[in-house]
Design a protein around this nucleic acid. Structure first.
Lengths: 344, 344
DNA sequence: CTAGGGTACGTAAGCGCTTTCGTAAGCGCT
DNA sequence: AGCGCTTACGAAAGCGCTTACGTACCCTAG
């Protein structure tokens, strides 16, 4: 077999510099034990030769990987693509490579992807998406991550907790609360929630926030109509259909993320329900298109790109005994999809 | 140093099966020279042990990589995220891993990312984005890809040609033509184009299509107002501003991609120009949010996700002497952002 | 002048695979 | 019985790095 690569190897650099492999390796790794002049000469020659270390050989020898695995639900969901953008940005700055996987919102498949990434010996695992209420759902993933970290891997979660790893977490409950308050302030009393799949912590937290806002104003959370479907545009459409059919008195719909809100708006448009005159709609996340929807969407802004960066930053730091939790800010963005409740 | 990994190695499998390393390797790779019974026993044991080959060792030994590098402009641009989704999908089906890079629309940085990917010894490179009119801009990338392919790498381009590699290519000119025709049919005579950066082949091709539609109807393409900015939302806003200020007689704006169209619509909204009553707007690509914009966008549909899959499929096939070009379909989608030209 | 201790560098043993080559066994044929 | 051929497997040489360990050298102190 011919040489796998035509690229210069470390021996080539070492020969040109008339030093041993060990010295060349040390010099390029910036480790000590090499005089400054020799190190400079080696680096000089390496760059002249266009030498770049073979990461496979390097990893095999040292066990230290420089690739980070990122698990998202769907890269073409704007929430996740903004997170991914942040991760990839920072990774590029750090000279790391990002391997990306889609779990397709399926916990079983997600676990499989996680195992695959770990089996591929990535050094860092970043996992986004929502956690599950049922601890049994998370325990397998958690065990996997624990073992991974015990053997020197690093992991961080984005927007999900209960995984026993560092996490960057938006305050979903406070965000939901702000949305609830905003709608109450506008006089809405018949509020429905288009929720993602039941059993997701993100859903539970955001919902709890909305409920608490109602309770704070002396209204029973039982009045809140909650329709579960999933965190997709189609899920939003389905939820809106159900709300319109079964609860025609509703004057405001809280979609628990922007993508669902897009579906909700779409259904309202095709049903010719004027927004916000007849129905107010709010979302959550403030994905970049939220401002361009018809009408532009009132929502809670989350700094997704920054969340991605922060998660990688956390994973890059040495592990602490207790998992860290980094909160993110959130902000109510009022746009044109909300207005005063229609008089009855 | 402790063993880098706690995972079972090939020796472990071999020992349990009481065979040599070579036999175990052959059996798991499905290569011949192993009796069926022995091979089955080895596979059985491997799966019991949860053995997964160390890709670093495997690649180092064989030179065959199983990771594909994908270069996009920005993952949070919906056009690219849909392409990425397709690539990642198919890669997962094939057991390949995807390393993703953002070039940030900067040709220099893109070249750097390309070199980086190749230096990282990916086996397949997929490059998306637009090519450049100036052949000198592409020659460096082309040389890099040529050398890469000569040494056994495989590459494919998505939506760009002139790279000397297999490519999946939408018919940008025909799409532009369809848009031009559509607007002419609606009676528009004062048409402006919000174009991406000058020098991009995508821009030139789509523009040529629009011009040819005008010419076909006996109008001079010189009448076409072309404003160059870039393929972003901000670029669309800027272009729209300029068009409104310098060419107030315009009744239709062709944005050369949907993301720019979003910016155009945003500007028109803030300037209170009614769409389509006073101004028609069209985009290009049909990203998934195009239907949810205000108003929903008339555009040319491109099968981005499928384009991603096709590109990977091409790269997976053995290389042919001449680069293949796989065309993609396109389709005019008429929505609410276009209407009859206002009477003057 | 020698012992002791750094410092700078080289030697060589892996990391966990793949693959070439060698060998032994089994087969049919003359 | 002897030959060549095929088949099934093992031994061992790498792939291109990192790093523990060894060694030569120089400097300072006694």
């Amino acid at each position: 077999m011919p040489r796998a690569s035509h690229r210069p190897r470390l021996v080539d650099v070492a020969q040109h510099a008339a030093v041993s492999l060990a010295t060349a390796s040390r010099a390029l790794a910036g480790r000590e034990g090499v005089s400054t002049e020799v190190a400079d000469r080696i680096r000089q020659i390496a760059s002249e030769l266009g030498y770049v270390a073979n990461p496979y050989a390097r990893t095999l020898a040292s066990g230290a990987t420089s690739t980070v695995g990122l698990i998202v639900h769907q890269v073409d969901d704007p929430y996740f693509s903004e997170i991914a953008a942040g991760v990839i940005q920072l990774a590029a700055e750090q000279g790391l490579l990002v391997q990306i996987c889609q779990s397709g919102r399926d916990p079983g498949y997600e676990l499989q992807q996680l195992r695959h990434l770990i089996a591929q010996r990535v050094g860092i695992v970043l996992i986004s998406g929502s956690g599950y209420d049922d601890p049994r759902m998370e325990s397998a993933a958690r065990a996997e991550l624990d073992a991974f970290q015990d053997h020197g891997g690093r992991a961080a979660a984005i927007g999900r907790h209960a995984l026993g790893v560092d996490a960057v977490l938006p305050d979903n409950e406070a965000g939901g609360h702000a949305l609830g308050q905003h709608l109450m302030d506008l006089g809405h009393r018949r509020i429905a929630v288009a929720a993602g799949s039941a059993g997701l912590t993100t859903v539970a937290d955001r919902l709890a926030g909305v409920s608490s806002a109602l309770r704070q104003r002396g209204r029973s959370p039982a009045d809140l109509v909650v329709v579960h479907s999933d965190f997709t545009r189609g899920g939003g459409r389905a939820a809106a259909e159900q709300i319109l059919n079964e609860h025609p008195e509703t004057t405001a719909i809280v979609a628990l993320n922007d993508v669902m809100a897009m579906g909700v708006l779409s259904t309202l448009r095709s049903r010719r329900v004027p927004v916000p005159a007849r129905m107010s709609v709010v979302g959550f996340d403030d994905v970049s298109v939220a401002a361009d929807l018809a009408p532009s969407l009132t929502t809670i802004r989350l700094p997704m790109t920054e969340m991605g960066r922060t998660a990688l930053t956390l994973a890059l730091k040495p592990r602490t005994t207790r998992p860290r939790r980094r909160p993110t800010g959130h902000l109510l963005i009022v746009r044109d999809s909300t207005g005063p409740a229609p008089r009855t």
